Amino acid sequence: MRGKVALVTGANGFVGHYIVKRLCEEGMRVRALVRRPEARAELEAIGAETTLGEVTEKGAREEAVRGAQFVVHCAASASSELDEARRVNVDATAALAEAALAAGCERFVHISTIAAYQLRNREGVLDEAAPMEAQGDAYAVSKAEGEQALSAVAARGLPTVVLRPAAILGVHPTSFWGSVLPRTIAAGQLPLVDGGEAIMGYLHISTLVEAVVRSLRAGEAVGQAFNIVDGHFRWREYTAFFSTGALPAATADQVPAFMSFRGSFSTEKARRALGLAPRDNFASSMAEITGAP
Score class of each variant (00 low, 15 high):
195 G>A: 04
195 G>T: 01
195 G>W: 12
195 G>V: 02
197 E>H: 15
197 E>C: 13
198 A>Y: 06
198 A>D: 01
199 I>W: 09
199 I>M: 14
200 M>D: 00
200 M>E: 02
201 G>R: 15
204 H>G: 15
204 H>K: 07
204 H>R: 14
205 I>Q: 15
206 S>A: 14
207 T>S: 14
207 T>R: 12
208 L>T: 05
209 V>F: 15
209 V>S: 14
211 A>Y: 01
211 A>Q: 04
212 V>Y: 12
212 V>Q: 13
212 V>K: 00
213 V>S: 02
213 V>K: 00
214 R>V: 12
214 R>T: 12
215 S>F: 00
215 S>E: 12
216 L>W: 04
216 L>C: 07
216 L>Q: 04
217 R>M: 06
218 A>T: 06
219 G>R: 14
219 G>A: 08
219 G>V: 07
221 A>P: 01
222 V>Y: 07
222 V>C: 08
223 G>Q: 11
223 G>A: 05
224 Q>K: 15
225 A>N: 04
226 F>A: 07
227 N>D: 09
227 N>H: 13
228 I>K: 00
229 V>Q: 09
229 V>E: 11
229 V>W: 08
230 D>G: 07
231 G>S: 03
233 F>N: 08
233 F>P: 08
235 W>A: 08
235 W>V: 13
236 R>E: 00
236 R>A: 07
236 R>C: 06
236 R>H: 15
238 Y>R: 06
238 Y>E: 08
239 T>C: 08
240 A>C: 05
241 F>I: 00
242 F>M: 09
245 G>V: 02
245 G>N: 07
246 A>L: 12
247 L>G: 09
247 L>C: 10
248 P>T: 06
248 P>N: 05
249 A>T: 12
249 A>Y: 03
250 A>W: 11
250 A>T: 08
253 D>C: 03
253 D>S: 12
253 D>Y: 01
255 V>R: 09
